[in-house]
Design a protein around this nucleic acid. Structure first.
Lengths: 345, 345
DNA sequence: CATATAAAAGCAACCGTTTGCATTAAAATG
DNA sequence: CATTTTAATGCAAACGGTTGCTTTTATATG
């Protein structure tokens, strides 16, 4: 079929092992020989056989990408595909294979992961979400499997490799930005709190308040899960109050966009009466009315860094667990303005 | 490391080849022997080694998933991730591996595909987009590689395996629905026309008009590429006209959502003054104000059917190219109502 | 100059399955 | 009962690299 190492060896007049070692640039092959071999490889158009080398080295060069168990909404978040793209770009470059793993619920997902492991279908896993008490991560940890977490490690932080944004800092900057615009009454709107980034961003928000001597008001923090249909009245109630926030940090563009729409219905103008800042810088941010000032978290890079970590740990198993922080940046649009002066302060 | 076929053979008191044939349920092994072997496999917890069998059968059991070359917007479309999930679920079930392939532009993408092919990293490819004159598809076709297209085949339709919606029908039903609500002046709003589904949906729209003896008015059809920033004035101009459409078919939720926003700015109420129907049933449809009536195209199933086709063609190479049509369904929300009676008809 | 040492290349076993062909055992046939 | 046919199993050579160890060759040492 295609050209093998033996044919190259024959043409170059050396043994197959010499060809193999030349490919890896093994030091015990002389420069002259290497050049001779490389010429032969070029001439024949040699490409190493992935399967054969996987078998010989007992290394599948395959990375499993674990998506969260499906609840349809989650996937509307462009984050996942961007991260997958980041991973795949790196895999493509380094001649790795990536295989996405998904399941309709947690137990199916776990099942698939187990058979993937048993069949040696993946060398390691990149987990694209992080939440408290996740059975998948627990399994990977307990089995001593190689994995990297995109997001924050809930426990065993020192033993797990993870790639994340500095969500505390991001939350702090978001709130600080609003504060710098003169806002004092700032709310925090979040979705599913089991996803860890939510909490981090909130911590950052609280930190910024504290740094500016603004008392934290728990009644300004609402958690809504409108995506799953269950509209909770908390947010609406809060907006009705005369003492409502003049600005909001929303943990996500989709939520922020929802907030803006709610405001329209309640005759609250954004940004004049309410400033909004959010995260992810997705298309929702651009499509929102007014377009949202949003913190871009570099999803693509989160993916590619995770893949890079994965590969270096595969190739160098005694590396220690590292954490990688991917920078974020604020994209200013029309949803935040200076707080209008009011008489009551 | 893990348990091999030889250990199973030893325990069962047969040869390795018998074990191998038992796994494939080969007819020339007696039932008694098979049972004996299966017991041994269970007892040892045997799992076949993927790499070894790939090597021996010269079959990598790996499917490449080709994403369109990146223009950031494209990926905001939840379609891709859903399709990937559909593919991956099937791959996971059938012990296949899927590897996503992407590149920042067409030439990089092509490059990656070529090395993937050369290294035997994929058995076949699923192309997740279809446009006219696509170099990637041309390459795959000319090299005689196995691929399945999600979307419509631009040429060589009879030789290519593809999985698609009946977009003509979907477009027709969308328009027909508006017509059934009494609309006669119906516009068509589309994005990038090089993506083939756009044209099909438009054909369906035209068909519905014709079937109802409604003259087709080209001035009612606008193509906008607002996502790439280039806002074209055509749509706005059309909406300003007194004789503007009373309803729109939009080729995509994102566009429809944009249209609704434009209407707000122009004091046109949706759906009272303008009904809108669109496609994809994404989160954008649910988030839009008012929420969009949209045709769900079953992205997930498009992916899983494509994977199923791929696998059956890998395992049975002399199968003829088939096309698979995945059904769509309309999801009615608040963006379409009966046309208000007006005096001029 | 003989010998120790280092550098370069080759040998051959191995990774775990698959599969064509040979072999054996059992059943059918003359 | 000998012989052909059929069914069931085993043998051993692939598949294409990798790698520990040995052999060869070149260089340094006493």
């Amino acid at each position: 079929m295609s050209v093998t190492i033996k044919e190259v060896a024959a043409l170059a007049g050396v043994s197959p092992s010499t060809v193999s070692r030349t490919c890896k640039d093994h030091p015990s092959i002389s420069r002259q020989t290497k050049e001779k071999v490389r010429r032969a490889m070029d001439q024949l158009g040699y490409e190493p056989n992935f399967q054969a080398s996987s078998l010989a080295t007992q290394n599948s060069r395959t990375i499993g990408i674990i998506l969260p168990p499906s609840e349809r909404e989650t996937y509307e978040n462009a984050f996942y595909l961007e991260a997958v793209r980041g991973i795949s770009i790196l895999c493509n470059q380094r001649q790795y294979i990536n295989t996405v793993i998904t399941g309709k619920d947690e137990s199916e997902l776990l099942q698939v992961i187990k058979t993937t492991v048993r069949n040696g279908l993946a060398e390691g896993f990149i987990v694209l979400y992080s939440r408290e008490q996740d059975p998948v991560v627990n399994y990977l940890y307990e089995e001593g499997l190689l994995y990297v977490l995109v997001g924050k490690a809930f426990r065993n932080a020192n033993q797990t490799i993870y790639v994340d944004n500095d969500n505390v800092l991001a939350g702090r900057e978001a709130a600080q930005y609003l504060i710098s615009l003169g806002h004092r009454k700032i709310g925090y709107l979040s979705g599913d709190h089991s996803l860890l980034y939510t909490g981090d961003r909130k911590s950052g928000y609280m930190l910024a308040l504290a740094e500016n001597n603004i008392p934290f008001r728990p009644e300004y923090c609402v958690e809504t899960s409108f995506l799953s249909g269950a509209e909770n009245p908390g947010l609406r109630d809060l907006l009705k109050q005369p003492d409502r926030p003049t600005a909001f940090v929303a943990s996500d563009d989709i939520l922020a966009s929802y907030l803006e729409q709610l405001c329209v219905g309640m005759n609250i103008t954004v940004p004049e009466e309410l400033s909004v800042i959010s995260f992810n810088n997705s298309l929702f941010a651009r499509m929102a009315k007014p377009p949202l000032t949003s913190i871009d978290i570099n999803s693509f890079q989160l993916g590619s860094e995770a893949a890079a970590q994965m590969i270096s740990h595969i190739e160098n198993p005694n590396l220690l667990a590292t954490k990688t922080i991917v920078p974020h940046y604020i994209v200013k649009r029309g949803s935040c303005i200076e707080r209008a002066e009011t008489e009551n302060e």
